[in-house]
Structure formats: C-alpha cells, structure tokens
C-alpha cells in the first residue's frame, strides 16, 4: 500500500523531469479566410474592430456614397409613387431595403436559425423589389 502511495507521489516528479513537454510549443498557425475576417483588427482597442464588421460598415457607407453620386449625376432623386402608396426617392428605397433585410435576417435567426443563405436570398429579392416597385 505504502509503495503504491510513493509511486503515485513519484508520478508528477517523472513528468516534471520531462521538462515542458509539448505544453509551451506553439501550435502551427493555420491560415484560414474565416479567421482572417474575424480576428481582432487592432488588438486591445475598445471598439473591437474586425475585418468583417469593418466590411459591413464600408458596404453601408459605399451604398450611401453611391446614392450621393447618382443624385449628383441625375438630380431629383428619381422620385416616384410606388405600389405601397409611398413617394420614395432612391435614398428612401435604399433605407427601406436595408431595414427590411435586417428584419428578414432577424426573423430567420429567431425562427429557424443558422445558416443564413435562405434569408440572404430573400433579402436580395426584397431589395430588388424595393428598387423596382416601391
């Protein structure tokens, strides 16, 4: 019995003798696109930017900038009365399609869950519908 206890006590010592073993070894970093998009962009910065969220905002601002360019090229905002009995300009249609898409994604996420390919298609369809008819 005593021998057994000694043996157990000795086990960590044996392990110690092995040094660090493979604990300290860095695992080989494998580059994946998913990781590239989602890793912290500025480490330790409180705003916590990632490339994915940055891309999201660039997309939104680019869309707004596109509306501005279109407005400068063809002033008047392409105003019309859509089928929802709303008078809308290009900018309004962009807003309606973005907000509508947000609701589509949220509804799908709550009711069905990931992945979000189906609602993406729905959102694109909604956007097309907004710019075409509303």
């Amino acid at each position: 019995m005593r021998r057994f206890v000694y043996l157990i006590l000795a086990l960590p010592a044996v392990a110690m003798a092995q040094g660090w073993g493979n604990v300290g070894q860095q695992k080989e970093e494998v580059f994946t696109w998913a990781k590239w998009w989602t890793e912290p962009l500025f480490s330790g910065f409180w705003m916590a930017w990632t490339r994915a969220t940055l891309a999201f905002f660039i997309f939104i601002f680019a869309a707004i900038a596109l509306m501005a360019v279109l407005e400068l090229r063809r002033p008047g905002g392409d105003e019309r009365d859509g089928i929802l009995r709303l008078t809308t300009t290009r900018g309004d249609r962009l807003f309606i399609s973005l907000l509508g898409s947000a609701y589509i994604f949220l509804a799908w996420l709550g009711l069905v869950g990931l992945p979000l390919w189906a609602p993406l298609a729905l959102a694109l369809a909604w956007t097309a519908f907004c710019f075409w008819k509303v």
């Binding site: 989602t38 910065f45 409180w46 916590a48 996420l109 869950g113 990931l114």
Partner: peptide, 13 residues
C-alpha cells in the same frame, strides 16, 4: 481587458 473573440451571430440567436 479589451480582448475579443469572434462569436458570430450566436448572441443574436
């Protein structure tokens, strides 16, 4: 400590 890890859309879900 301002250390962030990607969680995807988990919080929304």
């Amino acid at each position: 400590n301002n250390q962030f890890f990607w969680a995807g859309l988990r919080w929304f879900e």
